[in-house]
Design a protein around this nucleic acid. Structure first.
Lengths: 178, 178
DNA sequence: TAGGACATGTAATGCGTTACATGATTAT
DNA sequence: ATAATCATGTAACGCATTACATGTCCTA
């Protein structure tokens, strides 16, 4: 079972009901360290249902179709087992900015611009995390007694802050302030 | 043209000659923020050759086959153009540890172990970067007058250091020292 | 009444990894 | 001898994105 399937299980457990809900939830939370698309969600829901890990039911709004799901006990157990496997927790970074900077000797006049672009990119992410997501995560922690999403966000903020700091320092080296 | 092709171009420019060389170079450098596999490298080299961006020649060692490549002027220009496009510099993070921690409410007794695993993982990466890669990057910077790989490494170190710091702080919260 | 959000889904395509296959050379 | 390293390559598979298609409901 792929990580995407566990994201689906996890979001259902956090209160999402439909595939659409799951997508919305991902967009304001896990997308910063794990993205999934609708083309993964809907097939995954069907598969999980036939595996007995979720239970689905039609729940149309008027004439608009809608299918809602909930975790079964087996589904919750599967999610818990996956979380408990602490050996499988790889981190993978794909950063085109760093990659280009690595080869920047071929066009050194653009190196500083590259670093600036990287800094701005992380500053934007940081801004959205602090202004939009942090309040929601904070509310979720107190309302549901679940501190983990907030803890994850704090780590995410720390990482992007480190990128901002490191790139800002590098900018000063590359473009010495007169 | 995919980023993998530019990695191939870039590594040739940095002195790699064969597909095998490129793979070795990636393993001690870009792999921390961009990985490519042999199954990408060899087809890419053929494609780049037919596009006129690299020039290939047979260069066997005794009876052992070997094909070496070098950048053409067009290839160097293509690499420079790609580096100069500072608008295309996305950062993507895929972290199974953070993902599991996000859903850790389903098995809160494992949350602290998860965070410890994440910290150790980044400590290991940090160790390898500082002990193996930093000296090589430093030598490269002075020998070739190219400071960019070293700068990239510094940013990588800062990021992993931030992960270590943030996870260590979180461990203290989750497992209060009595 | 038009635009945006809600809601579900598929087909095509591309990207990338895994696993395998082959064989030579060098070091132990 | 044999293990490790050098060296190149492919086939199969799975994963994921993009783009598209369809239609409803709500709000300004």
């Amino acid at each position: 079972m792929s990580p995407a399937a566990y994201v689906v299980l996890g979001m259902l457990r956090k209160g999402a009901r439909s595939g659409y809900d799951i997508k919305q939830a991902v967009e304001i939370s896990t997308r910063f360290f794990w993205t999934i698309s609708p083309a993964q969600i809907y097939p995954a829901l069907r598969q999980l249902e036939s595996d007995g890990l979720v239970r689905g039911a039609e729940a149309p709004h008027g004439r608009r179709q809608r299918r809602v799901y909930e975790l079964t006990r087996a589904g919750e157990a599967a999610l818990a087992d996956w979380v408990a496997d602490t050996g499988d927790a790889s981190l993978e970074l794909r950063d085109l900015g760093l990659l280009k900077l690595f080869f920047a000797d071929v066009a050194p006049e653009h190196a500083a611009d590259l670093v600036t672009a990287m800094r701005r990119r992380s500053e934007e992410t940081l801004g959205r995390m602090r202004e939009e997501i942090l309040p929601a995560a904070d509310a979720f922690a107190t309302d549901h007694g679940d501190p983990h999403p907030l803890a994850v966000l704090r780590i995410g903020i720390a990482v992007h802050q480190a990128v901002v700091d490191a790139t800002a320092a590098l900018e000063d080296e590359l473009r010495p302030t007169r």
